[in-house]
Design a protein around this nucleic acid. Sequence first.
DNA 1: GTGAAAGCAAAGGGACTCCCTATGGGTATC
DNA 2: GATACCCATAGGGAGTCCCTTTGCTTTCAC
Lengths: 305, 305
Amino acid sequence: MLSLHQLRCFLAVYEHGSLTAAAEHLGYAQPSISEQIRTLERTLGVDLFARIGRGVAPTAAAETLRAHAERTVESAEEARRAVQAVTALETGTVRFGMFGTARLYAGAALIADVLERHPGVRVELVGQNSSDVYDDLRRGRIEAAMIAVPQVHSEGMSVTPVAHDELVYISANPDHLRSPVTAHGLAMASLVMAETTWRANDSTRIVLRQMLHETGRNPQTRIEVEDVETAVELVGMGLADSVVPRGVADQLLPRLAPTAGMVALRPRQVDTLAIVHRNRATLSPATRLMIDLATARIREICEPI
Amino acid sequence: MLSLHQLRCFLAVYEHGSLTAAAEHLGYAQPSISEQIRTLERTLGVDLFARIGRGVAPTAAAETLRAHAERTVESAEEARRAVQAVTALETGTVRFGMFGTARLYAGAALIADVLERHPGVRVELVGQNSSDVYDDLRRGRIEAAMIAVPQVHSEGMSVTPVAHDELVYISANPDHLRSPVTAHGLAMASLVMAETTWRANDSTRIVLRQMLHETGRNPQTRIEVEDVETAVELVGMGLADSVVPRGVADQLLPRLAPTAGMVALRPRQVDTLAIVHRNRATLSPATRLMIDLATARIREICEPI
DNA sequence: GTGAAAGCAAAGGGACTCCCTATGGGTATC
DNA sequence: GATACCCATAGGGAGTCCCTTTGCTTTCAC
């Protein structure tokens, strides 16, 4: 079977016109080069050099081979360089998972951070929904992600909490905001909740369910929508109240529901944002960079852990 | 040091998404491939695959490496071929792809032509179906082929049309043959079509779909069979009509459906037969000979371009 | 013409690589 | 929870790679 080593030896011999000189140039002994050329000739079934007393002379076949051999060796070298460039974050793709409020808080800024440091790279911020992100992690399509936990079961996954995001009650009705909202108040309220498709796994929902469960109540939502922006708008129109992470309220209330306000829950409830990756996974430099940048950004907005 | 063997293993693993499958495909044991990949990863200093319990997932570095690896392996293969070509016609094997009607028209005669000129060579006429031929071309298992286009996408391929083959309507019912068949008539007809497995890529089908599509109709076949001989026989039994290249009708009607006749389509429709090979491939003298002979044979039967 | 120098081939041996089988652990699927 | 699948590791045999030594042929100098 043809090998790069054979081609490299061939080129050296061709250029130097001598096995001995080629060997010296490559740092081998002369018989080693002799053997490589011989096996190359055997695999190709062609004589490449005519042995002429003093030195060697390339045959027609060698002339033909030379250009191809150079291109092949060059191409292999190019492959090595290309991979190296990816490692150095000069080029290639950086893929990271980010779901829900984490993306809302830090998505654009995170990408900006990466591009500022490494202008050559492509960035993919994956995160249509939490199930997708989780699946991508499990199947190795992405190395790590920042998501809100509790999530779908996390066995086999390493979960590193990085920040708490307090849940707040938002409403356009000032009467609803006079004092922190208790489980009782929550059970009485007319609520709009987002992420309806993922309601079973949605982190905020799970936290609320737990809070209500402890007082023996069942959460009932009045309106279900997909994206949190719509929920906030509905709150602004006074059609319902809602519970959202504080960062979301800070960002969206002024823009989408200027007349609405927020109040804490009692007892205080928090979403936990965490970095998640597969156990025992060795993270690439690119992913570690994403983790560091994302963590920094999130901690500016939420309470660091 | 990077080696071709490592790159070949890498590509196999990338394509199969599994070490085991790659090992089977290459004819090695699984641990051997595992070791090759591991040493490749070590020499490059990058993880190429994420081991995810069941199978492996390529990393970003692997995505980058793939294109270069393919080019390198391909280049080495090309080098081998180029040298081989120097001595080809005396001892070597002549391998040529020929699919569908082209083979039916010229297969046996073509082999006879080659053997007459070069009694020493082995001849392989490859062509189970168009997808296979195309794959063989891409991977360099055959240097060139004569096939009917339009084919699966042809990027990286050099396509040289050599002849047109008119499509004709065949039927055992004289009423159906009174005048050229239009798109309307075709849509009304009860048709038997061959090459059912490759229906999506079959050249004749594509031409017909285009013809019907322009009049807003959908082609519907009554009967689907694999080989065109069966289709013609069914036409002969009066069970359905069909559309075949004229050369096929000329050859097969007298033999398999003596009572049937043919009539043109309106507007006229043609299959294009073309020589296809990889861009920048150095064709061996043997292959060039095959191309010349095949072209000559085909032009005797169809309309030259 | 003869000795010396240069260069390739062959032989023998040590280290390493390649590839195998057998086995263990983790992960999906039923 | 049992099963099947897939990868990693371990250990060993065969082959390769590369070395040094040696011998042969050609070339060059005297």
